[in-house]
Design a protein around this nucleic acid. Structure first.
Lengths: 115, 115
DNA sequence: CCTTATACCTCGAACTGAAAGGTATAAAGC
DNA sequence: GCTTTATACCTTTCAGTTCGAGGTATAAGG
C-alpha cells in the first residue's frame, strides 16, 4: 500500500509537535522555540505553522488543552492524549520508512539484493 | 520571486532524480520506474512529477539531454552536468542536515547539551 | 512612556506534488 | 485487421501544506 495522496513528505510539523508533547505538556510559543533550539535552527517552524497544527491536533483529539494564567499572562498548555500517542507512533513509522526509502536511493549504486 | 521559504522539506524529487543520474544516463520513463522499484514502492513519483523536474533541471543547466531513437521509439537521455553534480552534493547535504535535525527532536528526550 | 519580550491568533500567497488527461509508436493478442 | 497493452513523451488542473506578514494584548525594562 504505497500511501500516495498527501505528498509523501508532509506532516513533519505535526510529527515534531506530537513528539515534543510526548515528554511534557507545553504551550505553543514554547514549542516554536524548542524546535528552533533543538535543531540548531536547521528547522525553524514559525507560529503561523505551529498554532494551526496545534488547533488541528486538538480538533482531531490528539491533544487536549488547558488554559492557565501564569504570572498574569495566559498560556494554553497542551498534552498528548492516547489518540495522539497512537498518531505519533504512526507518523514516526511513516517518517522512518520514507527516509529509509530515500536513503536507499541515495546510497543505491548497485543495491546488492538486500531486503 | 524573492525565493520564499521553500517549505524546508521540499526538493526531494529533484534530489532523487539527480542521484539516479549520477550513475548513468537515463530517460524519464526509466527514472519513474527505478524510483518505484528501488524504494519498494514507498516513494512513487508519477510522470507528472518527474518530467517537470527533468525540464527544470535542464533549464537550470544541471542536466543535459540527448534525444535518441531506440527501436523506432524516441527516448530522451539525460546526463548529469558538473553543475548538476554540485547541486546534488548541495541537496544531499541539505537532506542530511534536515533529517538529522528531525531525528534530533525524535530522539530528543534530554539533549545533553551537545551542539 | 515606549520598546522589547511574551503569548496568542488568522489570513493570503506561494509552492509542491498528485492525478488525470493527452499524443504517439510498437508489440502482442484476438 | 483491429484492439489492447506497454513504452515514452508531455501538460494542465487541483488540493494540500507551509510560510510570512500582520494583528491583539499583557508584562517588564530602559
Amino acid at each position: 500500500m504505497a500511501t500516495t495522496n498527501p505528498s509523501f513528505m508532509n506532516g513533519v510539523p505535526e510529527l515534531l509537535v506530537l513528539r515534543l508533547l510526548r515528554g511534557r505538556e507545553m504551550y505553543g510559543y514554547e514549542i516554536v522555540q524548542e524546535i528552533r533550539e533543538e535543531t540548531g535552527e536547521v528547522v525553524s517552524l514559525g507560529e503561523g505553522v505551529v498554532y494551526p497544527v496545534l488547533h488541528a491536533l486538538e480538533r482531531s483529539g490528539a491533544i487536549t488543552s488547558d488554559r492557565r494564567p501564569v504570572g498574569g499572562r495566559s498560556r494554553i498548555y497542551y498534552s498528548l492524549s492516547p489518540t495522539g500517542a497512537a498518531r505519533l507512533i504512526e507518523l514516526t513509522g511513516l517518517w522512518s520508512r520514507i527516509t529509509g526509502a530515500v536513503q536507499q536511493v541515495l546510497v543505491g549504486g548497485g543495491r546488492a539484493g538486500l531486503v
